[in-house]
């Protein structure tokens, strides 16, 4: 049985924001991550404010300039199957279809996927770790097979669990947010918080703020995108390593683009090292070898996750070879 909480399901955003001012209030969208956190006593909610009845937050539509507006409550399945997403943003479609299991994709929302709590077993377990307000990271010297190789600042070693966020960051998408002080927009790239900035926060959301929609910019001419996720088992799991590519080609040459890792860091991890190895170049064998080496430059593996070094290099090689041959 879940711990007790109050519950309210307003049908409009204004009221949802008002209700979120209650002590310990939390947003319930799909609930797949939230209920797990409540059951494991990771979170303690005084009140759940369910936004699931706010119809304005559902669905995908074209924006005026030819991009996409994805309502925060759009399910992951809807994103993965949407015609425009599949036609224009293949990486995002692949990322969404790699999220969890069919049932969870049917329930989980794109907004929720960005706001997920980490899957570190110490954080989810009965360990009062730094991220829960404790004084110690248990993964640093503990079982750290699935932990990060970048971005920990030797503080907290989680990896960000989202498969959609790296793709949205690679596409330079933005998050629209509504809160008690009104609306604001944040780039997906800047939406997540590194341990060095605040170890107890996952995202920049302030109390009372709700993700309302995700805006994906129009496709640049020559854009190719892809997502690769390596898992410990074939059916479904979180990423051991993953990479979202959104590269702009002019003929065979990469002229612009982004490379964002999953399974690598406490936030979706933009690899400027790989980007600078490939932008301006043709993806030939030499460039790809350089990019693969660059993908792990500055990595700091832990006692039990050194395998990720070779894994990222191998994955980078395969994915760049693949996207060099891909169609737009």
């Amino acid at each position: 049985m879940l711990p007790k909480f109050a519950y309210v399901r307003p049908d409009n955003l204004k009221e949802a924001v008002e209700k979120l001012s209650a002590e310990g209030a939390m947003v319930h969208a799909g609930g797949t991550d939230l209920l797990g956190c409540l059951r494991d006593d990771v979170l303690d909610a005084g009140t759940l404010v369910s936004i699931s009845a706010i119809k304005d937050l559902r669905g995908i539509r074209k924006t005026e300039n030819g991009g996409l507006r994805i309502g925060a409550l759009t399910t992951i399945t809807e994103v993965s199957r949407h015609r425009l997403v599949n036609q224009k943003y293949k990486g995002l479609a692949q990322g969404a279809s790699e999220v969890a299991s069919p049932q969870l994709r049917n329930q989980g929302t794109i907004g929720g996927n960005l706001c997920q709590k980490p899957r570190c077993w110490y954080y989810r377990g009965e360990f009062h770790c730094l991220r829960k307000g404790g004084t110690e990271c248990f993964a640093a010297e503990g079982e750290n097979t699935f932990h990060c190789i970048f971005g920990s600042d030797s503080i907290c070693f989680i990896v960000h669990p989202s498969d959609t966020a790296p793709n949205l960051a690679a596409l330079d998408a933005e998050v629209n947010i509504t809160g008690p002080k009104g609306k604001r927009t944040v780039k997906v790239e800047d939406f997540h918080v590194l341990p060095a900035d605040d170890v107890m926060r996952d995202t920049v959301l302030a109390p009372g703020e709700i993700v309302t929609e995700i805006i994906v910019p129009p496709v640049k001419h020559g854009l190719r995108s892809s997502y690769r996720k390596i898992k410990a088992r074939r059916s479904w799991d979180f990423a051991l390593a993953g990479v979202a590519l959104a590269l702009v080609f002019d003929g065979d040459k990469v002229t612009d683009g982004r490379v964002v890792f999953s399974g690598a860091a406490p936030v979706p991890w933009r690899s400027r090292e790989v980007e600078s190895a490939i932008i301006g170049n043709i993806l030939d064998g030499k460039t790809i070898r350089t990019a693969a080496e660059a993908s792990v430059k500055g990595a700091e593996p832990l006692a039990k996750n050194e395998y990720k070094i070779g894994m990222f290099q191998g994955m980078m090689t395969e994915e760049l070879e693949k996207i060099a041959r891909a169609e737009e």
Binding site: Y7, R9, L35, S50, S101, Q103, Q107
Partner: peptide, 26 residues
Amino acid sequence: ERGECGACTVLIDNIPRYACMTLAVE
């Protein structure tokens, strides 16, 4: 009871979901 095994799968408006991860009020 943590959305991993599927033994509780039900259809909600024809769509398979985990009943263990769905609040009844929802």
